Amino acid sequence: MWIENLPDGRFKFRERYKDPLTGKSFKVSVTVAKNTTHTRKEAQIKLDKKITEILKSIQYGKIKHDVHLKELKDEWLPTYKLEVRANTYSNAESRLRRVMRDIKPDTLIERITPNYLTNYFNNLLYKQNLKNGTVSHIKQTLNVMFDYAVMHDYLKENPIQKVKIRYRKEDGSAKPKDKFLEEDELKNILKFEYEIGDSYGRFCEFLYLTGLRYGEAAGLTAKDIHGNKAIISGTLIKLPKEEAYKQNSTKTLAGMRTVTLPKRAIEIINEQKQDFPNNDFLFCTKRKNFMPEVTLNHQLRRAKKKFNISKKVDCHIFRHTHVSKLAELGVPLYVIQDHIGHADDQTTKLIYLHVTKKAQQKLDSQLNKL
């Protein structure tokens, strides 16, 4: 350490350190008012601390130890937010809140082994009774976060890569006929929603008539409607404690499309415009300026219970029901996929094949009557 006298009477204490990456020497300094034994000792401590922090911030392939799970989460989430869509980030943040409830936030990440995570995921499945899909999404989020940890030398390897989860065999085994509503089920549910409020009934009917995803329909504005065509160019985003807004992209690239609206769908749009002439979104309620998905799905679960429907009933079932009706009308599969914005979707194929097979069986039985 050496000292420089400044023109204003103060003293600048300097120290050199070598950058191990370049081999070059650099300087750090602190300025004090007096040059005494006490201030020199304090200056040396401050200089050493500065050098330590600088060297600590530079990575040379050495693993950083003592990194806690919460520290990793707090560092990773802001960078992840810049890389993905708003709803993708929101979902990841929500999943990590659950993880932080289950695993102590001050857990050292280098102590989190594949075996520990395997037991954790199996606990979520078989003790907390979470669905396969939910656990799979939590695993995916942790996988991306731990990849970040490896890239920044907080871990030597990603423990998720060696995790083995015993997923439930029965999950995801719903039959194609359970993916969509039959005529009487559709009629009962739409009546139920209209009794709650015209806006809810119209929205559900519109989903059925168009095959749009919830976010695509909820994000529609008057500017998106051109005669009997709807331009699908975005999706509604509603994050916690934030205003709803339209994101200028859809779930997939194939989702960016133009959809032909049947007459009843156009009538529904005009009814909404008449009831809510000054609202930004076409679909809203008396209490909110958008159509709340959580509220709507809660109502649909009530309808499911009331009408003793064994299928999963939420906003998405109207989209599948739309596919089933088009299949009944004999519309080719590739045309349906293009219409609903699916480049390739297994569920759409299963519904289509189920409905067409059912129609063929009906034809076979009728042939005997000739």
Rank of each mutant, 00 (worst) to 15 (best):
A230F: 05
H342F: 00
Y167L: 07
Q274Y: 09
L367C: 10
G255L: 01
R257D: 01
R101C: 10
E328H: 13
I309A: 09
Y200R: 05
D338W: 08
F206K: 04
R213A: 08
Y200L: 15
T295R: 11
T347F: 06
A174M: 03
V135W: 05
K164M: 12
H298W: 11
L6K: 13
V32N: 02
V259F: 02
H322R: 03
A217I: 01
E83K: 15
Q44V: 11
V135E: 03
T37R: 12
T39W: 03
R213W: 06
A43K: 07
Y120T: 00
K49E: 14
P105W: 00
K357S: 14
D48M: 11
L209E: 11
L261N: 00
G330K: 05
L261H: 01
E42P: 05
L353W: 05
L77H: 03
R40A: 09
P332C: 08
G201T: 02
I138G: 00
A92H: 11
L55H: 08
L77F: 09
N228R: 13
D345E: 10
R16K: 14
H68D: 08
N132Q: 06
K306T: 13
L186I: 08
Y245V: 06
L329A: 14
K358W: 00
Y334P: 08
F203I: 00
D147Y: 03
R95E: 14
S324Y: 00
N228D: 14
E328A: 10
G197F: 03
L253Y: 14
R95M: 14
Y154T: 04
V335A: 15
Y154M: 12
N228V: 03
K179T: 01
D184S: 14
H320E: 06
A217N: 01
D8H: 10
Q247N: 10
L124C: 08
P262R: 08
H316W: 06
I138F: 00
C315G: 06
D106R: 08
N115C: 07
K325L: 13
H339P: 03
G219D: 11
E271W: 05
E185I: 03
L282V: 04
K41R: 14
I309R: 02
I268C: 04
I309M: 09
F206G: 00
Q346V: 15
I112E: 00
S233D: 14
D147I: 03
K49L: 15
T113L: 01
I54D: 11
G172K: 09
P159A: 11
F13V: 15
S173M: 12
S57F: 09
Y154A: 02
N91Q: 13
L108P: 07
F26K: 15
T22W: 05
K191I: 09
P332H: 11
K177Q: 12
D19R: 06
D74V: 01
I231N: 12
L367H: 08
V355E: 04
P262T: 09
I58N: 09
